[in-house]
Amino acid sequence: MEQFALWFIELFKEILKNIWNFFKDFFTLIYERTIGDIIRYYETFLVYSKSFSTLEWILAIISIVVLVVLSALIFVLIIQLIARYVRFVKTEKDKEVLLQEVSELNYEMLKLIDEKNAMLVLSDQAKDSSTASTTRKQSKGSNVQNRFTLLTSVDEAYQYKILDIKMRDEDKLSLEDLVDRFQSFSASQLKLYYSKKIIRIFFAGMATSKIMVLEGISGTGKTSLA
């Protein structure tokens, strides 16, 4: 057991040492390739610049500027390439997501189309059954006596008759007079009280359409107004 403990401790030390050396070498490499190289460049320049002439100093300064600009351009180019690669990877991932969404939408659309077709089939079947039922009811009801005999007789009596009705001048009313008379009549005779606005809307509806739909809560006088 003692030997195992010694071996395990030694192994653990070696692992920690290797991890430490890895990070140490990594940061040392970064330092050497950046600050260390710059220091060596500067030391080399100091050694050779001691014997520079004026022209050589000018050429040295121009060379340093050109090298700095070139290094900056290379650095910017590398950054741009990395950024383009990142955007490319992101775009590809977005494309995959969009393709997945499109496929899901297509699947949902196919399901909706199938449901629509099924509903159309059911609707056609319902129409066919309703038509058949209506036909049977009409055939049965053709032998039943009309319940509204008096109204039917009035319709038959005036069906082809042209009525020549001439109004006298005293019977002609303006819209304002008609509204006033209707309001007075409904209030005095029917005990129903309508505003002039409601009566105007009612007359306007009768003038524009043969069908009117009166809506409202119970007890407001819809039936009496009709």
Rank of each mutant, 00 (worst) to 15 (best):
M1E: 12
L6M: 12
I9N: 06
I9P: 00
K13E: 01
K13G: 06
F22S: 05
K24W: 12
L29N: 12
L29D: 09
I30Q: 10
T34W: 06
D37R: 12
D37I: 09
Y41D: 08
Y41G: 04
Y41E: 15
E43H: 07
T44H: 14
F45I: 03
V47E: 15
V47K: 14
V47G: 01
W57N: 11
I58S: 02
A60C: 14
A60N: 01
S63R: 07
V65W: 04
V66S: 13
L67P: 04
V69G: 01
S71L: 06
S71C: 06
L77E: 10
L77F: 12
L81C: 04
Y85V: 01
V86N: 05
V89D: 10
K90V: 06
K93L: 02
K93W: 00
K93G: 00
D94Y: 12
K95N: 12
K95W: 07
V97T: 09
L98G: 02
L98P: 01
L99M: 08
Q100K: 08
E101Y: 02
E101T: 00
S103R: 03
L105Y: 07
E108M: 04
E108S: 01
L110K: 15
K111P: 02
I113T: 11
I113A: 12
D114T: 09
K116H: 11
M119R: 15
S123E: 13
D124L: 11
D124V: 02
Q125H: 02
Q125P: 02
A126D: 11
A126Y: 09
S129F: 07
S129W: 01
S130P: 01
S130T: 13
T131N: 12
T135H: 05
K137N: 12
K137A: 14
Q138H: 06
Q138W: 01
S139Y: 05
G141W: 11
V144L: 11
R147N: 01
T149G: 02
L150N: 14
L151A: 13
V154A: 05
Y158T: 10
Y160R: 11
I162N: 11
D164S: 15
I165F: 12
K166C: 03
M167I: 03
K172H: 11
L173T: 07
V179F: 00
D180K: 09
D180Y: 08
R181V: 06
A187C: 05
A187L: 04
K191L: 08
L192S: 07
L192W: 03
Y194H: 14
K196C: 04
K197M: 02
K197Y: 04
K197I: 03
I199N: 04
R200N: 04
I201W: 04
F203Q: 00
G205F: 05
M206W: 14
A207Q: 10
M212Q: 14
L214T: 05
G216I: 00
T223N: 08
A226C: 14
